[in-house]
Nucleic acid binder design. Structure first.
Length: 254
DNA sequence: ATGGCGCGCGCAGCGCGA
């Protein structure tokens, strides 16, 4: 089973890219973030024609998540239980016995801001939920735009980014707390080339210059780790005209 | 690297993302 995550930055604008990418990459499960689409406008027909079922929760302009799958999606859950928040950042479902958590973590704006405090609170809520959920669902995969670069090697210029949003120490600590629940970063299960990123600023030709961050992740529970045979970043969609600023991350599970 | 981009909304220019 191939599972993937991609922040599409508007599903409406990126639908042609998404359909081409589904055909090329052939994921069995695709978690999307920043759909920016109300449920009534979700492109169900196009997604079905591509061979996928979908569950989704979105809103106008901001946020929005969806899970696409070639097999039935069951036990669909919205939001983080016990975290009073409704900006359409979390959707979960079970596919082929694997519990899929699709997350769009808050951006955080900048350290010290209200949005930053909210991001850290959101991560506390996430960690508590994960701890409980992992006990109930041992075959658990967490995918999404987690908006944190966990280590210096996940940032093109760690000195430049130290203390900045996505790479501040409290954020990295929050990410470590997630890992401490018992999940592993699928990308780091394997030897990887240097300078592997999933997001590049639209400005200043950041993609061409390799100025990126690795902030989109796939985390696997202990039961899934031995089943994982590969985890890669797919740069092809980012090379297109009018791309999303994020690249998809893909993991193969036996 | 930091003004510089791209999105939605809605019809001008702003809020937001990362």
């Amino acid at each position: 089973m191939k599972i993937a995550t991609w922040n599409v930055n508007s599903l409406r604008v990126r639908l042609p890219h998404l359909l081409d990418w589904l055909a090329a990459a052939q994921p069995d499960v695709a978690c999307l973030q920043e759909t920016k689409t109300e449920d009534a406008n979700f492109p169900v027909a196009e997604i079905q024609a591509a061979g996928y079922q979908a569950v989704y929760c979105g809103q106008k302009s901001y946020n929005g998540v969806a899970i696409l799958a070639r097999s039935p999606l069951t036990e669909v859950q919205h939001g983080i239980p016990d975290f009073p928040d409704d900006p359409k950042r979390v959707i979960a479902a079970t596919v082929n016995g694997v519990r899929i958590l699709n997350l769009y973590a808050p951006n955080g704006q900048e350290p010290g801001s209200d949005k930053y405090a909210y991001k850290l609170r959101w991560y506390q809520g996430l960690t508590s939920w994960l701890r409980a959920h992992l006990h109930q669902q041992p075959h658990l995969a967490v995918l999404g735009d987690l908006n944190i670069a966990p280590e210096p090697r996940d940032v093109h210029n760690p000195k430049r980014w130290e203390g900045k949003i996505h790479f501040s120490e409290p954020e990295r600590a929050a990410f470590r707390e997630v890992l401490n629940v018992g999940v592993k970063d699928a990308f780091r299960l394997f030897d990887q080339p240097e300078k592997q990123f999933t997001w590049w600023d639209y400005r200043l030709k950041a993609f061409e210059r390799g100025w990126g961050l690795r902030i989109d992740h796939i985390l696997l529970s202990p039961a899934l780790v031995p089943k994982c045979t590969a985890c890669t970043i797919d740069l092809e969609p980012r090379k297109r005209e009018r791309p999303s600023d994020h690249a998809p991350v893909v993991a193969n599970l036996n």
